[in-house]
Amino acid sequence: MAIERELFAKMVDFVQNCIDGIMIGAAYGLLAIGFTIIFGVMRRLNLSFGPSIMLGAFFGTWAFLTLNAAPWMVLAITIAGTVITGIYVERLCFWAIRRDATIASMVSSFAIWMQLDEVAILMLPGRTYPFPEMFVSGGLNFGPFFVRAEHLVTLLVTILMVVGIRLLLYRTTFGLALRAVSESSDAAKYMGINPSRITFLAFILVSLIGGVAGYLLLATDQQVTPYFGLWVTFKGLIAMMLGGMGSIPGAIIGGLVLGIIETQTQWYLGNAFKDMSAYVVLFLALVLRPGGLLGQGIAERQDLAFRRV
């Protein structure tokens, strides 16, 4: 009887960790979508994506600390700050540099990362600042399981955003043009599509997604540091690579897998192993399935498509 009870408690822990992992992983998935859309459109990584979100969050924190802004105001400022920073990065590192100069864009986006870090430190020089909590708090009990209200909001917002992104990509002119530019920006020109304009709009879109994801993560943790940019970059890139570069469902699955593995490792091995587990999983994934969980199929399909036409 005692053994059964112990087993049940262990099962509850495991399932609870999975629930927490899915909730956190949903936000990782949003970050990965941000990376994957830009990679899909430009075949280049935007290494300043994480720092842009961090700077947006710093604008929100600054408004909260100095103007005592309400949570919804902090959300709006965080998103607006991320979008403005995203546009700055796009103009400087991607628009101004030729499309085929992939390495130059990536290196310059890395340089801008340093710049954004410095701006954040100049604005708020301390190491850690409080970030306002969400408009909801507390939680819900489902039998033996507990779900934080913030986590629930994160999951719901992620689901809504993924549905929205899917509709945008598959039901609108902009989405069609974005997918066309992702496949071939040269061919898109013959359709009268201006690839620079689509890239610019894609940056605004991913900055919006990033701003929301950043707010959800920070409002759950209720603190922000200048290292948030680095943290976001790692989580987003790992989730994207786990799922497969260039795949939106892959980004979400990668985010969820990463979230679950992190919470399980944290519970069973301790906090110190949490981040390490993410790298181990990434390493194993890259060795066993280099294209990512969903990326391989997509890469093969695209390769076939390019060879046929």
Binding site: A180, E183, S184, D186, A187, Q302, A305, V309
Partner: peptide
Amino acid sequence: PEGRKIFGTL
């Protein structure tokens, strides 16, 4: 265009 430039994934 030359080479058709069809979008194969669409």
